[in-house]
Amino acid sequence: MDDFSTAFSLAFDMIGRLDPDLVEIVVLSLKVSLTALLVAALIALPLGAAVALFRFPGVGVLTVLLNAMMGLPPVVVGLVVYLLISRAGPLGVLGLLFTPTAMIIAQTLLIAPIIAALTRQVILDLWEEYGELLVSLGVHRARAIATLLWDGRFRVLTVVLAGFGRAMAEVGAVMIVGGNINHVTRVMTTTIALETSKGNLSLALGLGIILLTLSLLINGAIYVVGEWAARRNAA
């Protein structure tokens, strides 16, 4: 119990004086996950909307696939990306293994299906309401995608934040493709796993507190956005 309280006070102390190692890890985590989020959103928002609005061969299969991939285990994503970018893999020449870029690729693959599948549902719901009007106005499907993403912006933002939460919290994928190399690919989750097993509880706990706080902030933001949209009667 004493260890525990010592670890806590040390953890808060590290956060309080902005320990450089701690800051470096937090910054890298945010950089990797935010970049992955940006790339995933650019791909997944139009993709999810297109799956909702277009009738093309294979759209059913794609929908099932996206929904199934929402629950992808991060370690499996990590493994697949590892096989692709390892020296012997098809993309091995790029030399990406154990770099932040590899971690971004893995997290992008992990959260893009989540964002796409949830976006599809948002757009389907909106189409239910807007469909006849948009057809009546003579809106083409491609334009309809942009219209619905904009009009569903609050719900889409919630979806994107959910993707960010998932990226920040996962450990398996970045561990495998990043390798948890000190000062290079060490992020919050991988550091917590490593330092805990080494018995260095204060750093692990400090990072855990920051991670929890971030998670709370993200979910708080989701809630506030939802409430704000509802109050404006815009959701």
Binding site: Y130, L133, S136, D151
Partner: peptide, 17 residues
């Protein structure tokens, strides 16, 4: 001919703007 037509529905549909 839909370009020269317009329709108003029973339940008004308004965009979120």
């Amino acid at each position: 001919a839909i370009r020269d037509q317009a329709m108003v529905f029973q339940r008004p549909v308004t965009l979120r703007r």
